[in-house]
Design a binder for these strands. Structure first.
Lengths: 187, 187
DNA sequence: GTCTATAGGCAGATAGAC
DNA sequence: GTCTATCTGCCTATAGAC
């Protein structure tokens, strides 16, 4: 969902870009408006000329980060799974998926933010299986949980070898599930 | 791992119990020491007679919450999966699993806290498959990611029906995986 | 050990000059 | 639109009375 009636200034876009990166990396409480504005090359006072509140910025940043990811999605589902469940994604400082990086941050936020998260989740699940436009099927939900959960867990644990093994195990599981689900659809 | 050399006062246990519930529900930044102490029936000043810092309390609370869960684990793996991936677990105000509820909170914390999380993760993974004492196998890692990820995602999304469907899809996947993994071990 | 009081810092949001 | 300055409130942590 876009906000077509709103003007997009260059400053606004710079704030949003900084917010995407910082919020995804550190969560809502881990980032101050001051830090976002400094990263964007401005001072605090200018913030409220572009956004109503920190919460509004957070919701827009998550939505914008998801759109940016979507724009770079590979054509093949297999390739998407491989890139998502990779060390590169885990360690990326930009372009990370808010579904995984913020999954346990969202439950504490307000309705608008949780709606944004749910919309993004549904969109990605729809890409992974089921008829487009209708509800995603169970296999797609499982695959997406393996992707989101795998990245979230690998980021939490403090053991690089175990993190790699988690990513690999989930990658195999997700690819298997996708293959057998596509097979079933051909029957 | 316990701290056997430390005395356990009744007050200390009450603080810890409140911290388990509040931190698991709202995360590190979502809870103040004031709130924990009020919940435990004391005032702020008494806190530092029992814990060195908020971070220390957080680490101990996560560890303690995991131990409390473990003590109530059912004998059967299937039953564990069913209870973990249930609405009751999702909505429980106490006895929830910090692995799922805090998964994307942990990456922002210090080494001690991340080590605690990793240790708990390994312990639960070991219960789900592989030889006891050695490293958990890939199927166990996948099963645990489905459980942790399923609960985390279901908590994040703002759609009760979809949350139920996510839990159910993960439950089926985890039970299937467990069954076929046990089968393989018998061969 | 528990209390009240407070130090010292940082946060979100606003006001008004330019 | 962007700046500096400030209001207001909450936080962690400590000091000192009891």
């Amino acid at each position: 969902m876009a906000w077509p009636s709103e003007r997009r200034s260059e400053s606004r876009d710079r704030i949003l870009l900084s917010a995407e990166r910082l919020f995804t990396e550190r969560g809502f409480d881990g980032v101050s408006i001051d830090q976002v504005m400094q990263d964007a090359g401005m001072t605090r006072g200018a913030f409220y000329a572009h956004f109503k509140s920190k919460r509004e910025l957070y919701a827009e940043a998550i939505s914008s980060a998801a759109k940016r990811m979507e724009a770079r999605h590979p054509a093949s589902t297999d390739e998407l799974i491989r890139r998502y469940l990779s060390i590169q994604h885990l360690e990326s400082k930009a372009g990370s998926c808010p579904l995984a990086f913020l999954v346990s941050d969202i439950g504490q936020r307000d309705t608008q933010i949780r709606e944004t998260y749910t919309r993004i989740f549904n969109a990605l699940a729809g890409k992974l299986g089921g008829e487009p436009g209708s509800e995603p099927d169970d296999a797609a939900l499982r695959t997406l949980v393996l992707m989101v959960g795998g990245v979230a867990v690998a980021r939490a644990i403090n053991d690089a070898d175990l993190a790699e093994r988690v990513l690999e195990a989930c990658r195999e599981g997700a690819l298997d599930q996708c293959a057998s689900s596509a097979e079933q659809r051909l029957q």
